[in-house]
Amino acid sequence: MIRYSIGDRIMIGCIYLLLTLLAFSTFYPFWNALAISFNAGLDTAKGGITFWPREFTLENYSIVFQDSSLLRGFGVSVARTIVGTVLSILATSIFAYGMTKRELIGHKYYMLMGIITMYFGGGLIPTYMLIRNLGLMNSFWVFIIPGLISVWNMIIFRTFFKGLPVGLEESAKIDGSGNWGIYFRIILPLSGPVIATLALFTAIAHWNDWFVPSIYISDENLLPIQTILRQTLLSNISVTQMSGLDSASLARLEQMKNVTSKSLTMATMMVATLPIIAVYPFVQRFFVKGVLIGSLKE
């Protein structure tokens, strides 16, 4: 047993205090937003909601769940997350399996071609022009196709596949399986952990993306919930700025509207956050593993 001196005890006491403060400051904004989302909109306006709603109501959520554009946005987010993740993981892992083959002619050049893209890119404007020329503006596929292949994930998959026992592949070959058969029947079923880790990160990136739709999508039916939420927040802010300029009565009127919607906005925000919070406790072990795979590669 290690014995602590007085100085050590003071230091450790400070550490516990600082960590508690950090955890509280991270937890509180989420909890506060949750409390506001369950509070009656007009009452929220008076301020002072901290840990618990003062006038508890489910009205904000019932408005959110009746708003057809929000529901559609939620649907678009779910669709792009599922389709994007499945296709990207499938395409990237097939690419990675092909790249494990030593006999693959040109594999060194293929690898170089991939790695260069990790360090250099065309930047925002040339990419924007390309997407426009390809006719992907206002198309669901702009969410899926440009990010289908991730060189970074390919390298992680490839490292994992190379670590699998060679014997399995050889015995399958003797049984007459081709490379594609081996990939689907042997490699894919053995890669559960790495697929789970990379799928998780890909899915979260899809769910959280608001920027790509904000520049490529003008059709409101195709906007995911994050982009809709951003527009809602923006309109809230502009109302606040306007109310500062206008005459007193108008300002009060605007403020009433504005804060009514603040509880609503928090409810929308909670709905957009919910899928991540819901899977978060179960996947923690995966993402710790994931970040370590990534850093070991470096």
Binding site: P29, F30, W207, N208, W210, Q226, T227, T265, T273, Y280
Partner: peptide, 10 residues
């Protein structure tokens, strides 16, 4: 794991 939209809202 939260988008900047959510963080900005908070």
């Amino acid at each position: 794991f939260m988008s900047w939209v959510i963080i900005g809202g908070l």
